[in-house]
Design a protein around this nucleic acid. Structure first.
Length: 420
DNA sequence: TCTGGGGTCCTAGGACCC
DNA sequence: TCTGGGGTCCTAGGACCC
């Protein structure tokens, strides 16, 4: 058996974004609300409040559909930075219980409490203590579902078993039963495509997956087939790891004290336009704004990127994206923009719905000072603006070129310069 | 007048170098 | 004239997660 002594706790905040807003704003409490992107009319529900879920609203449902199902729903544009800040607060709480904290997403963490809890009774007591601390420090609206199991994969499956505010304990001998009571896509790592392919192979539950020859799974899914086989056995036969560990994104080997944010692999932003457009000037303006946001986050984290990926989604929901790698790394929004526009410009940009870019191949440290005075000047201007942004928050400054009025006054053609 | 926005990793083919 | 192998980088595309 896979290290049977491990005890993993998975904590998943319930309706997290919505709960945060309801905690902050008493007017929203007890009401069906949906947290959305910026353009509420063209967005989806990122998180539905517990009240909205009870009325049939589901995550990722379009706002249009949510409104049809639940006419009283109120939409609220989300504030990712706020949610991220609060994530740090609850991870700090977890760290007062164990140093082995592995943040999994903005509202989920794994805790290895093997040493601290000793057994499953101790683990249950610890889970209840953590829940009390969350209530005390973050307010009673923010609740969590907790799963306790011998590995990450089962702990996550367990936490999803009872929502909201559930506590599910799955001892090693109960893991297979938990799997047999679950749907294939309840498991983190099996999405709709894989489920469909498994169905086509005659596999529709974990019992069938367990009994399916491992070699055949590997033939069909390569290394992922090995993982599927091990997952179906819940680590009883051979070691199994959580999907995130399998995918190599585990942070468990890294110290989690101090900086809870794992090293990012990419920084990106995208934006669904208020209405589809074929106007290159409009697209350029949005792209520049997005590039600036990416650049700002990278400079804040002292990283530079060598690769830029630019992408668009068209009105028919087809999309196009390309990436390009550059010799000189950068964290300057202007350069990121130019790289991204070089990628998009040759494409027939007609009826564009969404535009975005992402920067990757990151390295730590800022770029070398430029040999050119103009660029050095620009670097110092950016530093000053970054300082302003740190002090007064995002949106304290904008490039002239990203302002709509600029475009109206420059109808003869689009023009960027280095003034801000 | 349907479908956001932030990420992660894997696979596979081609180019290129030694 | 035949045909290598290993390694790395780049790019596209397809999955998955929240």
């Amino acid at each position: 058996m896979d290290n049977p002594s491990r005890i993993i706790l998975h904590i998943d905040m319930n309706s997290y974004f919505a709960s945060v807003e309801q905690q902050a704003n008493p007017f929203l409490r007890g009401k069906p609300i949906g947290i959305t992107g910026k353009n509420q009319e063209r967005s989806v529900v990122a998180t539905a409040s517990i009240e909205a879920k009870a009325l049939g609203v589901k995550t990722a449902m379009s706002t249009w559909e949510a409104k049809k199902i639940c006419p009283s729903i109120m939409f609220w544009s989300g504030d990712p930075e706020k949610y991220s800040d609060i994530m740090h607060r609850f991870n700090t709480i977890y760290e007062s219980f164990t140093p082995h904290v592995e943040p999994f997403s903005v509202d989920e963490s794994f805790l290895d409490i093997t040493e601290e809890a000793e057994d499953y009774f101790g683990a249950t007591c610890m889970a209840q203590a953590i829940r009390s601390r969350l209530h005390e420090e973050l307010g009673e609206r923010i609740t969590a579902s907790i799963g306790i199991a011998p590995n990450n994969l089962m702990a996550k499956l367990a936490s999803g078993h009872v929502k909201p505010n559930g506590l599910t304990v799955v001892r090693p001998e109960d893991c297979l039963k938990l799997l047999d009571d679950s749907e294939l896509d309840d498991l983190c790592g099996i999405g709709p495509r894989i489920k469909e392919r498994l169905h086509a192979m005659g596999i529709s539950n974990f019992k069938q997956l367990r009994e399916f020859p491992r070699e055949n799974l590997e033939h069909e899914f390569h290394s992922y087939g090995t993982w599927l086989h091990e997952a179906a056995w819940a680590g009883v036969r051979s070691p199994v790891v959580g999907f995130s560990e399998y995918k190599g994104v585990s942070q468990s080997s890294k110290p989690t004290t101090g900086d809870l944010t794992p090293d990012a692999k990419s920084y990106g932003h995208s934006y669904t336009l208020p209405e589809n457009t074929s106007d290159a000037c409009v697209l350029k303006r949005y792209l520049f704004g997005l590039a600036d946001k990416v650049g700002w986050r990278m400079r804040r984290d002292n990283v530079t990127a060598r690769r830029v990926t630019a992408f668009v989604r068209f009105g028919d929901f087809s999309s196009h994206g390309e990436q390009r790698t550059f010799h000189e790394p950068t964290a300057d929004g202007m350069q990121l923009f130019h790289m991204a526009w070089r990628i998009l410009e040759p494409i027939c940009l007609v009826d564009v719905r969404l535009i975005g870019l992402s920067a990757s191949l990151l390295s730590h440290g800022s770029t070398q000072p430029s040999l050119f005075k103009k660029e050095r000047n620009m670097t110092s201007v950016l530093s000053a603006l970054d300082e302003l942004q740190k002090r007064y928050g995002s949106g304290v400054w904008k490039r002239g070129a990203t302002l709509q009025t600029e475009f109206k006054s420059r109808s003869s053609g689009f023009h960027f310069d280095h003034e801000v």
